[in-house]
Write a protein that binds this DNA or RNA. Sequence first.
DNA 1: AACTCCAGCAACCGCGTTGTC
DNA 2: GGACAACGCGGTTGCTGGAGT
Length: 292
Amino acid sequence: MGRAPCCDKANVKRGPWSPEEDAKLKDYIEKQGTGGNWIALPHKAGLRRCGKSCRLRWLNYLRPNIRHGDFSEEEDNIICSLFASIGSRWSVIAAHLHGRTDNDIKNYWNTKLKKKLIATMAPPPPHQLVAIASSSLSPSSSHYNMTNNLPPYNPTISTNQLISPHLSPHQEMMMTMMDQQQQQLLYKEAMDSLVNSPNSNKLIMSHQEDSHAQSTNKGIMLLSDVRSGSSTTSTVTRVKMEQHDHHHEERSMQDYGMEEINHLISSSCTSSSSNSLWFDENKTEDTFMLYY
DNA sequence: AACTCCAGCAACCGCGTTGTC
DNA sequence: GGACAACGCGGTTGCTGGAGT
């Protein structure tokens, strides 16, 4: 059974508000208040409008001290930082910006600020992370599975969980702007690039045990730079994994040849009939990064 | 001048949450 | 505590006006 409509749609006016309607609504609310009942308000105010529509019009346009347009640099920064930390909770973000409505901020973000951020993304330095993957693999488990059996992207993990201290604020912003499909796609590209890299002698692998993430879910993949898409990820030449206990261990490709990695990958394939044996529930959460 | 495309924005829709009986 | 009504929020839609051809 569907939800009952909030009003009789056949008898309410829809579409843009006329100045007369605005005046009626404004006048009524200024004199009588909303009465705590938006559904009854349009009838009392003599408007043939849905209560929801009246509420929206009042909150987004008619109420006092509303500001429109011309977001300042400071407001941009607030929006960006809040978006990076709490996501698209526009009402919460709006609460931090005096006179701005959630709808305004949402529109501003979708039409301008997001593009502005992408445009101002500085080219990453050569050592910058291309991708970060987190899995519950142990590096000794020989379960890296990166050829034809890519580990599944795990959408159950929130973006916020994915954002790690390894990322710059800009990279965090980029991640929050990517949907899961984009993340999955870039992740696959990065993995393909890694496995298929002809310049295999540049591949370095070490290990990091991420104790902070041990209690979290597993099998997530995070790509931190989407600026150049596949062309960027195709230049992946190194994998670096760092020990969480500060015992950094970096092994050159002499230690981890491409064949060895492929062997590690393929060995995981044989240990399960599934093409997604990416996780080992008994292992600790690890993080590895792809550098270029 | 006519047409198409597209960015920007106002408004709508549907769902989760909260309040009331 | 369950049912229902209303609110509030975020995602989406569609209208409008300006730019480009």
